[in-house]
């Protein structure tokens, strides 16, 4: 675990990490398989993510990294395997999936904001309908979270009036407002114009500094190198290699990782 480069500010903003958690991973995946008919997309993934850790999943397209991410809150139904989130086995029959999903924030490539609601409406919907908060209460919280992603002045704007970067930050706020124990990012910057990528990465950097646990699928390798605690290289549904970013990007041990890294650094 690379907690060494966590900056000092993390200690002051103790958000999700209570002392009791540090002994066990927030996310514990074992022997996860997923097939679509005959097509095996995931073939036995083991992954433990520890509190405050930022894990990057990289790999060629079709390697299964997005599917893995989407299995973690069961938007995709895994074929077999176990997933334990914050001590709760989410694969167990009878698990209240909707309650567990609030602990797992998810951010999508195409934002998926609700077009008929304002930024604040997007952020507060689940607060009101799932957590049962009163509107005023939810809106106070919503405004605060929008402030954390730098959008206090956009609370009443509708998605179509926001730039891509602003939309993605609203989407992050929507997930963040539920105070998740772990956040999943599915290529959060791939749909953005290059000049808007920075604002989203900055928000992710801030979240990391405040101690949020994050699993990120992304092609922002520069960001991964600078911010990730650990990088997993996936290919054909398996974890081929994992380690700190310096190892994966500068001194990969596996031939397939070397190939991939050479290709991505060529351009």
């Amino acid at each position: 675990m690379q907690l060494t480069d966590t900056t000092g500010s993390a200690a002051t903003t103790a958000d999700p990490g209570t002392p009791a958690d540090t002994g066990r991973p927030i996310l514990d995946v074992a022997a996860l398989h997923k097939s679509y008919g005959a097509l095996k997309v995931l073939r036995g993934i083991d992954l433990a993510v520890w509190p405050r850790e930022m894990v990057f999943l990289i790999g060629p397209s079709g390697s299964g990294k997005s599917t893995l991410l989407r299995c973690l809150n069961r938007l995709e139904e895994p074929s077999s395997g176990s997933i334990v989130v914050d001590g709760i086995d989410i694969m167990a029959p009878g698990t209240d999936l909707n309650r567990v999903r609030q602990r797992i924030g998810m951010v999508f490539q195409s934002f998926n904001l609700y077009p008929h609601m304002t930024a604040l409406g997007n952020v507060t919907l689940a607060l009101r309908k799932v957590q049962g908060r009163r509107r005023a209460d939810a809106e106070d919280l919503g405004r605060a979270v929008l402030g954390r992603v730098g959008l206090s002045d956009k609370a009443d704007a509708y998605p179509h009036a926001l730039s891509g970067g602003q939309q993605q930050r609203v989407a992050i706020a929507r997930a963040l407002a539920l105070e998740p124990r772990v956040m999943l990012f599915d290529e959060p910057t791939s749909a953005l114009d290059p000049e808007l990528v920075g604002s989203v990465l900055q928000v992710m950097r801030n979240m990391r500094e405040s101690g949020m646990t994050m699993v990120v699928v992304s092609h922002e390798f520069g960001f991964a190198r600078a911010a990730a605690d650990r990088v997993l290289f996936l290919d054909t549904g398996r974890v081929v290699e994992q380690g700190p970013p310096e190892q994966i990007f500068d001194a990969p041990q596996e031939a397939r990782t070397r190939d991939f890294v050479r290709r991505i650094t060529q351009h």
Partner: peptide
Amino acid sequence: KGQWEAARSTGLGLGQTLAYV
């Protein structure tokens, strides 16, 4: 489809997703 996924990922149930989103 992304609207369903976004709503479900925040813990809204099937009926709530239909009704509000």
